[in-house]
């Protein structure tokens, strides 16, 4: 076991874990930040995506000993109140089905929009390599466009505006 001081969502957090522990499991088991998900353990699915110094990174392939002073941002730290444009767009467009991969999708999309605020369709497809087993890819594309202020073309998405949500649940997030 070794002691590490990590910079997580703007706070210093101390952990005592084996040096080869993936950041994913430090977040989930040691720090109880469970929004970052375990999906494959081999860097393929992207459910574990976090930001390291703003760069989308698969935390299941990032051992804790390599993190150092880098700023780690998880879905819990993307905004303080669920108000990031992507979080809002994901709720408004009802992107999720099971929802398990969506924190990783949002983190990947947030890194994309930071680099490229108005991505073209092909740039979205190229950047978004995360797996969604429910295959909500059409709404993932739409969610990114909504957050980026890009008009959403075609099919059923046209008629989807802001729709009611359960107020009490929104309050629960605050």
């Amino acid at each position: 076991m070794s002691k590490y001081t990590l910079q997580i969502n703007g706070q210093s957090r101390n952990v005592d874990v084996a040096p080869d522990t993936p950041l994913l499991w430090v977040l989930r088991d040691s720090l109880e930040l469970v929004g970052t998900k375990f999906g494959c353990g081999v860097g393929q699915c992207g459910a574990c995506t976090v930001h390291l110094n703003g760069v989308a990174t698969r935390s299941c392939m990032t051992t804790v000993s390599t993190v150092g002073r880098k700023q780690v941002t998880t879905i819990e730290g993307l905004s303080t109140d669920g108000s990031h444009p992507l979080q809002k767009a994901w709720c408004e467009l009802d992107v999720a089905q099971c929802g398990y991969c969506q924190a990783g999708q949002i983190m990947a999309a947030a890194a994309l929009l930071k680099e490229n605020p108005k991505p073209a369709d092909q740039e979205i497809d190229d950047a978004m390599t995360n797996l969604c087993r429910c295959a909500t890819y059409i709404r993932i594309r739409a969610g990114i466009k909504r957050a980026a202020g890009i008009p959403i073309e075609g099919d059923a998405m046209n008629s989807m505006g802001a729709v009611p949500t359960v107020a009490s649940l929104q309050e629960a997030v605050k």
Binding site: I75, G99, M160
Partner: peptide
């Protein structure tokens, strides 16, 4: 069109799933 009741928890990464 009613959006999913767990959406706010999903997009903020709160404890929700079995795991």
């Amino acid at each position: 069109r009613i959006t999913g009741v767990d959406n706010p928890k999903i997009v903020t990464g709160q404890s929700l799933f079995g795991i």
